[in-house]
């Protein structure tokens, strides 16, 4: 399992691996929002938590279609399915590798991009905490979507449509934590909901992903 994780990380960082794609998209969105919304700093600080969360979510979505498709195209998914690793652990490792190469960089970049959007000072901590808890769910849900659409030509469109509604609860509670944190309100309730959603997706979805992958490989 460690070997698979290391291979996926290595592939992501080598030429053409797509590392930085999500990060660059996140940067573009947050740099452009002040230009399109206008320079009123009070308006910017009101919308900053929501914009940062939306940017992170879309950046995550951008890299999903490569998550399993590349392994399917070169035949290694078939070979992994016949290897001693259970398919459940294969998809979990894939999701973990996706989070480490896409989710975690977004979490680390978010406070710097928060400055561009005039995010209020107390909001920085809560933004990072909410993204840290929310982005793993996005990787796990995304892996499920990728497993559903693996093998379809141009499956990226269908993948986005399938995954978007599943991302909604995470977005609502994640952005709510960041918004409440930025305005100095208590954050416990949405934070617990966000953590609960993440825990549930990590516990349940790998089984669903492995099941649909088995059907798709037939």
């Amino acid at each position: 399992m460690i070997a698979l994780l290391l291979r996926d990380l290595k592939l992501a960082f080598r030429a053409g691996g797509g590392f930085g794609l999500g990060l660059a998209f996140f940067l573009i969105v947050t740099v452009l929002v002040p230009f399109s919304v206008g320079p009123q700093s009070s308006l910017l600080s009101t919308i900053a938590p929501g914009v940062l969360w939306l940017g992170a979510l879309l950046a995550c979505l951008l890299s999903l279609d490569r998550l399993l498709a590349l392994d399917w195209e070169d035949g290694s998914l078939d070979l992994l399915a016949t290897a001693p690793l259970p398919l459940e652990s294969v998809v979990t490792i894939k999701a973990l590798a996706h989070w480490l190469t896409t989710g975690l960089p977004l979490v680390l970049a978010a406070p710097f991009l928060g400055v561009l959007l005039n995010l209020p000072v107390p909001g920085f901590f809560w933004l990072v905490v909410s993204l840290l808890i929310g982005t793993p769910a996005m990787s796990v849900i995304g892996t499920f979507g990728a497993a559903l659409t693996v093998g379809l030509k141009r499956g990226g469109l269908l993948l986005s449509l399938l995954v978007l509604p599943l991302y909604v609860p995470t977005l609502i509670f994640g952005a709510e934590v960041a918004r409440r944190g930025a305005t100095g309100m208590e954050t416990q309730t949405p934070l617990l909901m966000l953590a609960g959603i993440t825990a549930a997706t990590i516990a349940l979805l790998p089984f669903a992903s492995a099941a649909v992958l088995r059907i798709n490989l037939r």
């Binding site: 291979r7 290595k10 592939l11 080598r14 030429a15 053409g16 691996g17 195209e73 070169d74 035949g75 290694s76 078939d78 070979l79």
Partner: peptide, 10 residues
């Protein structure tokens, strides 16, 4: 199988 399951960048 017909495909070798190789990663071109490894």
């Amino acid at each position: 199988s017909h495909s070798d399951g190789l990663k071109p960048t490894l």
